[in-house]
Design a protein around this nucleic acid. Sequence first.
DNA 1: GTCTATATAGCGATAGAC
DNA 2: GTCTATCGCTATATAGAC
Lengths: 203, 203
Amino acid sequence: MTVTPETATRMPAAERRASILEAATEVFGARGYVGATTDAVAKAAGVSQPYVVRMFGTKENLFLEVLHRALDRLLGAFRAVIAGHGTSAPDLAGRLGAAYADLLRDRGLLLSLMQAFMLGADPVIGPAARAGFLQVYGLLREEAGFGADEADQFLSHGMMLNTLVAIGMASEYDSDPAARDLIETCAPSKALMIVDLEKQQRA
Amino acid sequence: MTVTPETATRMPAAERRASILEAATEVFGARGYVGATTDAVAKAAGVSQPYVVRMFGTKENLFLEVLHRALDRLLGAFRAVIAGHGTSAPDLAGRLGAAYADLLRDRGLLLSLMQAFMLGADPVIGPAARAGFLQVYGLLREEAGFGADEADQFLSHGMMLNTLVAIGMASEYDSDPAARDLIETCAPSKALMIVDLEKQQRA
DNA sequence: GTCTATATAGCGATAGAC
DNA sequence: GTCTATCGCTATATAGAC
């Protein structure tokens, strides 16, 4: 009657890194940098807490890697849209917006980014977050060919979407008509996706 | 050679409450709910840590009071603008936007609000944050007479401004031309205020 | 490659004096 | 009205076995 060993099955380091990063993205996105524990990340990834620390050195470094991964995916998704259509394509902003909303599927990704943006006062994470934000802005202006107004609109609505997801407004969608009105007013085309993802998340 | 007693001079409870709330607003705004310590709040207010806890019961409750105070000030500022001009006044959105930016002077106020918005997953703070956000939205639609597009624009740019302040982008204003470009693109009329406040904050 | 055990530190909260 | 002292919990990080 030997109990199954609770040791995680062996896995190549690179693969394990990837799955821990994925788990960390979700945990950091939901609880923020300070609120997230390395133990919660470990449990989400199915490994022990010290193993997470050993693999990434420190919690701070783990968060930095989550941030960079999120930025890579975001910039990559945008570049794929631009490459597939070209700067002069009709409604490039709409296509980029759809790509952005699509990243909500990667759980915690946009939220981890937003959590990083809130850490401007941190001496290590702050600079990294600012650099990341500027990278996104630079892509919009230089690679997507956005003018000042277009970039402003795009980024502003992105921050609004992030905020609505972070605050969990979709959880009131069914019960509160005002919440429903707000979501459909401020995130019209993304409304269904937000709501569906939250429902799926609770299931 | 007796040392000055480190005991804070006696003060009426109501007054002490107010100054602790003010200090807490600044600390929560800068470090977030989890990252802020009751000790940092106490030091900023010039009292002992147990006294802060004793007066507000718990850190959670202190944060809720900070949130409500911030909302009161925000809604009050908006209502003052509306009362002073009337719904049909020209450029009501511009005047409300100016009032919003003006609240940046109340250090940490808009940041504490934003930090609350990031806590949607918290079982106590989450609902309070959502209710607060909906109050603001309701005021814009019903009291300011904003249409859907107008409210969307206003809130989106508000979230963008919050994010730029939280990430501390103004600290790169002088050294990084891209940061300067971003700030002047996405917060044109507020750019100077953001930058000035941060410089003043470092001094 | 992964775990158990544990050192160490920081923080929220309580007790009780003045 | 305000403090000092301190408890007890949680969390990151280290040491070392397998």
